[in-house]
Amino acid sequence: MPAAAYPEFRLGSVLATSFTGTLSERHGHPVERIPVPQRLVDWLVVSGLAVDSCTAEQLGLAKELREAVHAAATAAASGEPLPADAVRVINERSAQGRAVAVLTSEGEREWRLSSPSSVEDALGVIAADAIGIIAGERDGRLALCASPTCRAAFFDTSRSRTRRWCEMNTCGNREKKARYLANRRADADHRKDSG
């Protein structure tokens, strides 16, 4: 199936929480954005962790990591204890990765994987990013999307640290549109009752 046949990726600026967004609308009608190994390859490429292939087993490891990061980030954002199973998975993936950070001539950080097919190295980078975020090592705060159908954990780096939605273009606009339509219906009902 061509890439255009799958839902678009919801890419954020924070690797670990962007990765959890490969499954969105968790409390509504879930949208799986990496249903097949090739879609994981596509996501890793656009996220700066280029691999050339992925097996079904590696996709399973990736989804397990995604759910562990989601569970741990959600708990951290809610001020709850981190789930032991999630911590175990995140730590295992971090320890199994052998990627190294290199500095490009443009002054950017780039990840070098041990081989072009090492999805495990890419997952190690994602796990390490999750550890840094959940441990509070980065400037920002974990928060949960205000959309009742989404509730994704995201990393808020806005100046005020008061972002309400994981993405304004999706969840934020949908919630604002729903409020607007509800207000219009309420106004119409009020006019009908008073007329």
Results as ranks from 00 to 15, higher is better:
1 M>R: 04
3 A>T: 13
14 V>I: 14
14 V>H: 12
15 L>E: 13
16 A>Y: 06
18 S>D: 10
18 S>L: 10
19 F>C: 02
21 G>K: 04
23 L>D: 03
24 S>F: 03
25 E>V: 08
28 G>N: 15
29 H>R: 14
30 P>N: 08
31 V>L: 11
32 E>T: 13
35 P>K: 12
35 P>H: 11
39 R>C: 00
43 W>D: 04
45 V>D: 11
46 V>Y: 02
46 V>C: 05
47 S>H: 03
47 S>R: 06
49 L>W: 13
50 A>Q: 13
53 S>E: 12
53 S>M: 05
53 S>C: 10
55 T>N: 03
57 E>Q: 10
58 Q>W: 08
64 E>N: 07
64 E>R: 15
65 L>D: 13
66 R>A: 02
67 E>A: 12
71 A>G: 03
71 A>L: 03
72 A>K: 02
75 A>T: 05
78 S>G: 14
78 S>P: 06
80 E>W: 07
82 L>G: 02
83 P>F: 02
84 A>H: 06
85 D>W: 04
85 D>M: 04
90 I>H: 02
92 E>I: 14
93 R>V: 02
93 R>H: 04
95 A>D: 08
96 Q>S: 07
97 G>E: 11
97 G>M: 09
99 A>F: 13
105 S>Y: 09
111 W>Y: 14
111 W>L: 11
114 S>F: 07
114 S>P: 01
116 P>T: 15
118 S>E: 10
121 D>Q: 05
128 A>K: 12
133 I>P: 01
133 I>S: 07
133 I>N: 06
142 L>D: 05
144 L>Q: 14
145 C>G: 06
145 C>T: 07
146 A>D: 15
147 S>M: 08
148 P>C: 04
148 P>Y: 07
153 A>P: 12
154 F>L: 00
155 F>P: 05
160 S>C: 00
161 R>V: 01
162 T>M: 03
164 R>C: 07
165 W>G: 10
167 E>P: 03
170 T>W: 15
178 A>Q: 15
178 A>D: 03
182 A>S: 15
192 K>M: 10
195 G>F: 00
